[in-house]
Design a protein around this nucleic acid. Structure first.
Length: 312
DNA sequence: AATGACGCCAACCGCAACAGC
DNA sequence: CGCTGTTGCGGTTGGCGTCAT
């Protein structure tokens, strides 16, 4: 039983890519385009598995990648997107032109987590740390698809904890416990930046990219990418393909799985969070200020469910 | 200068989703 | 409708560079 490995591991290279391998991959994709990752290594004369080639291309070799440090605007945008999407790095990356999911994930784990903790915000729940820690409660986080009890009384600061060997000199950091200062950024504040333009085209993406390059980027959340708005096409940069969403009275959340938010979680994140996500993000032309859950997102068993229709 | 601790990032792994048959 | 192959995603790890002692 079990699936055969994606490649013949005995005959593939692993580890860091050489310049020559990079060149071969670039040349091949330049002439043949992306796709068919499984057959690509052989065709390109690379002793790598397709997955590895894809990763290398997407995360490092793609010509449209933006290199260099993240800007303050990008930081804030990532934080806001994460507060709404959770660890959906590919979706977040889709809103940051030139950035990859891997890059954002790494950046989150190494920088933003600490930044939020220093603000007194739990990076997983985006709630004030002292609020949840004080009660000694666990918070159910549904944004990653399945509920996870988070012992938020203790927040592990160390993103790279696997080799954090404790020493007497660095004990506070090594044990990962942080006393956070109570400063909060509510979701409401975050959502003040939200728009619901409704459509995103490749042209939009280009424009957005230009804006960023020109330093005109504002921390705008444009979450049409997944929520059931009107007819639109969302360009998923990570997949380089168009995703078409058909208008539907059932508000759709096309994150791949049903997402559930507990009322407690929603209401505790600020006034604006206590809004049906569909409506709040602009579906069906509803007002973003309407503090209601729409019929399609009504609760079952205490949770608010956003779902995709059975035929999608 | 040497050594250990830490920070960072590229790459790997396993699994889920998707597509085609 | 189930099976199989492919692709994409998110979590994790390896290893190198930098910092602190």
């Amino acid at each position: 039983m079990g699936r055969s490995p994606c490649c013949e591991k005995a005959h593939t290279n692993k580890g860091a890519w050489t310049k020559e391998e990079d060149q071969r991959l670039i040349e091949y994709i330049r002439t043949h385009g992306e796709g068919c990752w499984r057959s690509l290594p052989k065709a390109a004369g690379l002793l790598r598995c397709g997955k590895s080639c894809r990763l290398r291309w997407i995360n490092y070799l793609r010509p449209d990648l933006k290199r260099g440090n993240f800007t303050e605007e990008e930081d804030e945008l990532i934080i806001k997107l994460h507060s709404l999407l959770g660890n959906k790095w590919s979706l977040i990356a889709g809103r940051l032109p030139g950035r990859t999911d891997n890059e954002i994930k790494n950046y989150w784990n190494t920088h933003i987590k600490r930044k939020l903790i220093s603000r007194g915000v739990d990076p997983q729940t985006h709630r004030p740390i002292n609020e949840s820690a004080g009660a000694g409660t666990a918070v159910m986080d549904f944004r990653n698809g399945s509920p996870t009890a988070l012992p938020v009384a203790q927040i592990n600061l160390m993103a790279d904890g696997r080799r954090r060997r404790s020493t007497a000199a660095s004990a506070p950091a090594a044990n990962g416990l942080v006393k956070a200062e109570p400063k909060t950024e509510t979701l409401e504040e975050a959502n003040n930046y939200c728009t619901s333009s409704g459509t995103t085209t490749e042209e939009d993406q280009r424009q957005e990219k230009q804006d960023v390059v020109l330093g005109q980027s504002s921390p705008v959340l444009d979450l049409e990418l997944s929520i059931g708005l009107g007819p639109f096409q969302s360009f998923d940069t990570a997949q380089s393909k168009l995703v078409r969403v058909v208008p539907n009275n059932n508000h759709q959340l096309l994150f791949g799985r049903a997402v559930q938010y507990s009322p407690e979680m929603v209401s505790s994140q600020g006034a604006a969070a206590a809004v049906c996500l569909c409506c709040h993000l602009g579906s069906q032309g509803s007002s973003s200020s309407s503090p209601e859950f729409c019929r399609n997102c009504q609760s079952t068993n205490g949770f608010f469910r956003f779902h995709r229709p059975p035929n999608s």
